[in-house]
Design a protein around this nucleic acid. Structure first.
Lengths: 222, 222
DNA sequence: GCCGGTCCTTTCCGAATGGTTACGGCCTGC
DNA sequence: GCAGGCCGTAACCATTCGGAAAGGACCGGC
């Protein structure tokens, strides 16, 4: 479990980081609000412990930023402000929990554990078409409950076709979606080969890939 | 928004119920622990505010029951016990938040709002899958009650897989969660080796780690 | 009907991916 | 400072994947 600690009091930061590491967490620490936002921008933390007062942006701004950008990180505000009005403001800015300094370290750990129990984000819906069900979370495709064994590339292509169905998907879009370097497969027959392999795995799946000459491909039922 | 209030002090119960209704919530109240469980059994509450000491079953038992039965209700414990050890026990029993009496009513409202924001459904404090139980607080993993001796890295990986199950977890996410410097294991086969060691300890544990080529790993039962 | 272009399919092979094992360095506890 | 556990490295292996190539099918236009 990965935790971000944003606290400008060096002594307190050390205590928190050491204690958390001791409990087996992967901890990164920053001492500025803007640095905290940077970290959240690039890494996927499970929990962030954010001090209210910090140089470079208040903790409350960090929380608001994370909420605005739909980060899955659970946010715990940490502060010396213990007036009810402050707590209310902290929580209403989007924090999931609020702990007042000085605090018992064991309680901090317990609150972190409580936050970890939150399910992450919203479950991706299962795409269904014909007899085929594609589950993006499990990365699994089944036909009548039986798994179709798709390779990574085949999966990406089928996912795109299912999402767009019944619209036509251009070759270029397929290239962009399923290849790192989207110019690569256009000069070759790579896409053709993939489509052929994919089709070979679909019969009796209740869907079929229709070629639209000069335009691309489309997924149809039946 | 539907809330259950379980509090045996009639005066306090009235205050809470009136205040919540005033804020537009639909509130049911009970004054016994067993009644609280009954209500949770039959109705689908968004939030339950549960006092610790009550006739007919302690609040902590209500919380444990709700978690054990996968109730999606967010649980807030309310109590006069403010020793850190009590708070920790309350939270680790599965409560999502813990508020000490006497409290500011505005803060209660803010904490309720914070609970509402989280996606519905919260995992139990102990993760269970197949015959394996993983207790994050004790940092212990058992299969059928017998301890599996996992190393620190193996534990971190298994914890992540169990939390995300049945979703696929990318290698990069595994790297971020189980290693300090997440770029390190990606260039090597460190993750592969850890997975191999972990698998070696899992047979007959009722779970299995499935490789999803090009995507990552997934924990499945069976 | 012929022709050019687009698309399909199959085969082949190099490369990538991942699993397993042995080894050795490092840290910890005694 | 020694023993043992932990974990990364490297080597080896099995398997899979996907693109190149080649030949054929199909389509549309003239």
């Amino acid at each position: 479990m990965r935790i971000l600690v944003a606290e400008d009091d060096q002594a307190l930061q050390d205590v928190i980081c050491l204690g958390l590491r001791d409990s087996g967490y992967q901890v990164d620490a920053v001492d500025r609000g803007d640095d905290a936002i940077d970290q959240l921008k690039w890494y996927d933390y499970d929990v962030a412990i954010v001090d209210w007062r910090m140089p470079g942006g208040e903790g409350i701004d960090v929380v608001a930023w994370a909420r605005k950008h739909d980060k899955p990180t659970a946010l715990l505000m940490l502060t010396a402000r213990d007036a009810p009005a402050d707590r209310i403001r902290g929580l209403d800015s989007g924090a999931d929990d609020y702990l007042v300094k000085p605090f018992d370290f064991g309680e901090l750990l317990a609150r972190v554990r409580a936050l970890q129990r939150r399910p992450r984000g919203v479950a991706a819906p299962v795409l269904e078409k014909g007899r085929v069900a594609l589950d993006p979370a499990r990365r699994e495709v089944t036909a009548d409950g039986r798994p179709l064994n798709l390779t990574a590339t085949e999966y990406l292509i089928l996912e795109l076709l299912m999402r767009r169905s019944p619209a036509v998907v251009e070759r270029k879009q397929i290239a962009e979606h399923a290849w790192e370097d989207e110019t690569d497969p256009l000069g070759s027959n790579a896409i053709d080969v993939q489509m052929s392999r994919l089709r070979a795995k679909l019969p009796s799946a209740g869907i079929r890939i229709v070629t639209v000459r000069g335009a691309g491909y489309r997924l149809d039922t039946g």
